[in-house]
Amino acid sequence: MLVYIFLYMRYSRIYTFFIIICCVLIITSCKNETDRAKETNENDVIEVYNFNQLKPLLNKSNDDKIHVVNFWATWCAPCVKELPYFEELQANNKDVEVVLVSLDFPDKFESQLIPFVKEKNLGSQVILLDDPNENEWIAEIDDAWQGALPATLIYTDTKRTFYAQSFTREDLLKEIEKFTKI
């Protein structure tokens, strides 16, 4: 019985996501072109986005990729610990696209985030999310997220899971495995 309920809740949530994704896609379809231009920037450029600019990166479709969006900050110890696992994913797996969304303090962009990204030589795309309306966008990223870091969103065209937790290398690979098409 419990399993049944669990599945029901799970799929009803996925269904809700699907509707949200469709809405977002329709709303942002006109905007996509400019945002895509930004995405192709060099990796060493850290873009500063508000939530509306970030949204397309949370809802890419029709590209057969596994999208991994990690929410982190240089000041968050468990985030920094798991960063290498995301970097390895990006480097070793052609089918995976990693985006590292930093929630560093916007006034520490120059003094903390940029030097950190340079020092670690991060290969994944890094974005600073600077949007003051956190109560709204945290919920929009995932209803189960209260805003604690780290957190990660993994999605493909057909599957979407949010993780309000940190990962070990093993656990992350195990989760990615679930998104790999047979």
Binding site: C76, P78, L103, E134, N135, I138, A139, W145, Q146, G147, A148, L149, P150, Q165, S166
Partner: peptide, 9 residues
């Protein structure tokens, strides 16, 4: 009830 950025416990 609201949500806010924070450190995990």
């Amino acid at each position: 009830s609201t949500r806010a950025i924070g450190c995990s416990i």
